[in-house]
Nucleic acid binder design. Structure first.
Lengths: 334, 334
DNA sequence: CGTAAGTTTTGAAACGATTCATTCACGGGC
DNA sequence: GCCCGTGAATGAATCGTTTCAAAACTTACG
């Protein structure tokens, strides 16, 4: 059952050292020996034991990506980006899901630390980064994902949500809308607050425009529908002609409410609608929703790169911030 | 940097064997010694090296779950079920995403085999199971998820899609509908074919009922909408009064088309609608959709159990099939 | 106080790969 | 024919744990 270098060595008539060399630096072994060893490996069905290698090398060849919600397409794409980038360096990425629970997160981190994992890419569940500081203290590179962390001492990759909010509002202004509403909340969520702040700034820059905040208790379809119902009369009275939603689920909920009102509101004729995140449903909604896209795969790839940087000594901490991108669809056409 | 049992032992004034015992069978160590060792562990910040443990034990304490699409809520929930069940036995679960690519899948399996992973739970990308047979040959338990595998020699967990299709159709019949339509495809997808077959059987059992198949090219919102448009006249003419969709995306697409038709079709008054999978969007659609739920978390938990069973010698292969469940909502009310 | 029967603790061997100082083999040059 | 240099192969030491036979220590009892 247990085929190890030893058996391979015996079968090929060489020493274990040579087998190891064939595996790791074949150029230093005589070609015909390489062939002989490779044959033995194939015949015996040898599979290297990475536990042993790792024990010897002191560090694993894998990275871990810990996300808040593995069902969220945002993280799925971040993961894909990370995997692809890691594969370039022969590394693999383990996905772990904290489900926004610090306890689950901790359990995963414990396991990874015991694995002497090569690096942790994480979108932390809480505000307490001390567990991560311990890991870093133990020499494990840590990169924060989707959370700005200048000053925390951690490298990070994030997207500029202030810019995203501004992008959304400015697009509505540029297509002639003047009375905007921002739908989203709660504001304690950093991303939401940033997006609102960005929208605010864009509106302030345009003297004739106004922005009204419609707070949400959660970022769901149903909540969007609730708020959408409240919006109908405002739009009918000409007091709102553009809507920025803090994410696509809210935007789609709002849209449903508007289209289904007693006296339906037309999109984009009566009101322009911009979402955020550019999830699949945004494009296939009844009226396809203009949205703000984040470079999700790039975020993942960059996180891997930052982790690799950290791995070399005297690593300079870097905080990368990406710019979001506007995707125009029917919901804001003019 | 490297704190090992040796340092802990020295600090606590005991031998390494005792430290190991404190870690693994504390009941066999004198309580006051346990305390002393635990203190040393805490003071030194010792973290066990699982590579070393694994090397010694010959097998990892982790399982791997390889899914086709980590963005699909179905798999997310399966994963949660697997993690929770595994945690009970102190095991952890690594998630890997094959994105339906055999190549990616293979890469992951290679890594896991090198890790001497404790077991692989997989929803295979292709039809070729030979790679998995090799793994099993190397003593790694393999469990097929969401794929019936009686006769393949692998343990498996799946849901009875024939029964699910029957459940959906029968519910429409029981609420008085007689002219049913099945929306779904392509039929080469096993799940779709099974669901259709089940619906067919249920309809055949009711002499006065008919079933009409409306093939789909893919299982998406847009395709549902396209088919829904074709359904409107049929419903208006009284030739269809119940719809079974092969999944919720199709059902929601159909619903949109019906509600938005020139002359809207009322749901559930004019036509009953049943989806499949019970995704979140089903409950929060404009008219909440009756759906067929699969015991997703249970599937994950069971897969873990089957893997654990396989791990003991002379393991009997088991093929578990679960029954789907009907979730009644407004779209089929009478 | 001695002995038998537990309880605890010990420490060396083993797991499988990598490393690196050594040894070996083979030509080429003198 | 001898020496040296080079390229190739060797194998013992090492990583951090667990295990387990043996040693050391306790306790109970006659």
């Amino acid at each position: 059952m247990a085929v190890s270098v030893k058996e391979v060595a015996a079968h090929a008539g060489v020493s274990v050292g040579t087998v190891s060399n064939v595996l790791n630096r074949p150029d230093q072994v005589k070609p015909e020996t390489v062939v002989r060893v490779r044959d033995a490996i194939r015949v015996l069905g040898y599979v290297p034991n990475s536990a042993a290698r790792q024990l010897r090398e002191g560090r694993s060849r894998s990275l871990a990506l810990v996300v808040l919600d593995s069902g969220n397409p945002f993280f799925t794409d971040v993961a894909r980006g990370a995997e692809d980038r890691a594969a370039q360096d022969g590394l693999s990425v383990f996905l772990a899901n904290s489900s926004d629970s610090t306890e689950r997160e901790e359990r995963h981190l414990d396991v990874f630390e015991q694995q002497r994992i090569g690096g942790v890419l994480i979108s932390p569940a809480g505000d307490d980064l001390s567990r991560l500081e311990t890991m870093r203290g133990h020499g494990i590179p840590v990169v924060l994902v989707d959370r700005e962390a200048a000053g925390s001492g951690f490298s990070s990759v994030a997207v500029d949500d202030v810019a995203g909010g501004a992008l959304a509002a400015r697009h509505l202004l540029e297509t002639g809308r003047r009375q905007l509403a921002f739908v989203g909340g709660p504001l304690r969520i950093r991303q939401v607050a940033d997006r609102f702040q960005g929208a605010s700034a864009a509106v302030t820059a345009e003297p004739t425009a106004t922005l009204r905040l419609l707070g949400a208790d959660e970022m769901t379809l149903d909540e969007g529908r609730r708020i959408g119902e409240a919006l109908v009369p405002l739009i009918k009275q000409g007091r709102i002609d553009g809507i920025v939603a803090a994410n696509d689920l809210l935007a789609i909920g709002v849209q449903r409410a508007l289209l289904f009102a007693e006296e339906p509101v037309r999109i984009p004729e009566d009101v322009g609608l911009v979402g955020y995140d550019d999830i699949d449903f945004a494009a296939s909604a009844v009226v396809p929703v203009t949205s703000i896209r984040q470079p999700r795969e790039l975020i993942g790839a960059t996180a891997v790169e930052l982790a690799l940087e950290q791995a070399v000594d005297g690593a300079p901490v870097r905080n990368v911030v990406f710019a979001p991108e506007l995707v125009v669809r029917a919901s804001t056409a003019r």
